[in-house]
Simulated scan of single mutants.
Amino acid sequence: MASIKRDEIEKSIAYAEKNGIFEKLNKIYDTVPSGKCEGCAKCCMESVGINLTEFLNIYKYLKERPEIYNKYIDKVLDYYFMEYKEKKPCPFLDENKRCAIYEVRPLNCRIFGHWYKSDYNLNLDSIKEKNRDYRDLMKARYGFEINEDVVEYRIEYCEKFIPDNGERLSKEERLSYLDQIMILDSQIYSKGMIDIDFRDRGIVEYFIDSLFFTDTSYNMKIKISQDFDKGEKVLKRIKKIVAVGKK
């Protein structure tokens, strides 16, 4: 059983469709300024944070395209369970550095190039400090070292992205987009159709929670991280179990 049950997802998607929530989400996306991106994909190196409404929108998109879902769910598993060993790109990035879910990519992807450099670097410094604290916690609690390349990885500020209007977004403007999407989330949560805790999740974590209980997946991740040689065999078994569940 998963933390986010399949029937809860389907009911929430049906509610969102009936009440125009995905249309409202797209209208929010449409107000994000456009810009010129070189497509280097250097920014596509994390489990980017998303909201519930965004997860449901992406999940619906993939389930309507099972060939894409089936191709990328293994990459989701690789990213999550091997996260402490090596830094992998976003699992939805294809071999040609193209986004497999570009049409429904989340807000954080859409506004990435729109940060002011000073704001971006302050946020990056905060993330690095949290990563180091987490590394120390894992060492003290479970006795293993997170790969230092993972801990210290930086997605550098993009100097090459050019906003079409020549202006980047202030912190207040970026947060206003987030607030609008959180209002959509609250409409779904208020109906009690989906029983999950209200916390920050990345896109990978949302999909993992749609496959496993949170405690189960986390405990398996810790065991794999304590011995990666044996862990790769465990991951192969996990993939087989998930593959059976997709049928």
Rank of each mutant, 00 (worst) to 15 (best):
N165V: 15
Y142E: 06
H114Q: 11
C99H: 05
V76W: 00
I203H: 00
F144E: 07
D185E: 15
K36C: 04
K36D: 11
L77F: 03
G245I: 11
S210P: 03
Y84C: 07
D30F: 14
Q187H: 13
K87E: 01
R65W: 01
S176T: 15
V234G: 04
I162H: 05
Y134D: 08
M45T: 02
C109G: 13
P89F: 10
D133T: 11
V104Y: 04
Y153I: 08
Y102F: 05
L175T: 09
L178H: 08
N219E: 12
E54H: 06
Q226T: 04
I4G: 00
Y80Q: 09
V76D: 03
E54M: 09
S225D: 12
S190M: 12
A243Y: 07
I127F: 02
S190N: 07
K246L: 09
V151F: 06
I73T: 07
M82Q: 06
G166I: 14
D30A: 15
F22G: 00
R135V: 04
I73K: 10
D164N: 15
R132W: 05
L93G: 04
K75G: 08
V32M: 11
L25N: 00
N19A: 06
F161Y: 12
K63W: 13
I4F: 07
S34D: 14
I208N: 02
L62G: 07
S47F: 01
N121K: 01
I155D: 03
C90P: 00
K233N: 13
D125L: 02
I68W: 01
E172Q: 14
E103I: 03
I222N: 09
C43P: 07
Y177W: 06
K24V: 02
D227L: 02
Y177F: 12
F213E: 04
N147E: 04
N108L: 10
P89E: 06
N70M: 04
E167W: 03
Y189M: 09
K247I: 05
N123C: 06
Y157F: 12
Y120W: 03
F207G: 02
D229L: 05
Y69L: 07
F55N: 00
T31K: 15
I21W: 00
D125M: 03
N57M: 07
A100S: 11
E129I: 00
R199W: 07
K88T: 09
T53E: 02
C43S: 06
K97V: 07
Y80W: 09
D30V: 09
T53F: 02
Y134C: 08
R237T: 08
F22I: 01
G166N: 11
R199Q: 13
R199Y: 10
F81L: 05
F81T: 00
F112T: 03
I181H: 01
K221Q: 05
I73M: 12
D185Q: 15
I68H: 02
V104H: 01
A2D: 11
E86T: 06
K233T: 08
K11P: 08
C43H: 06
I146F: 06
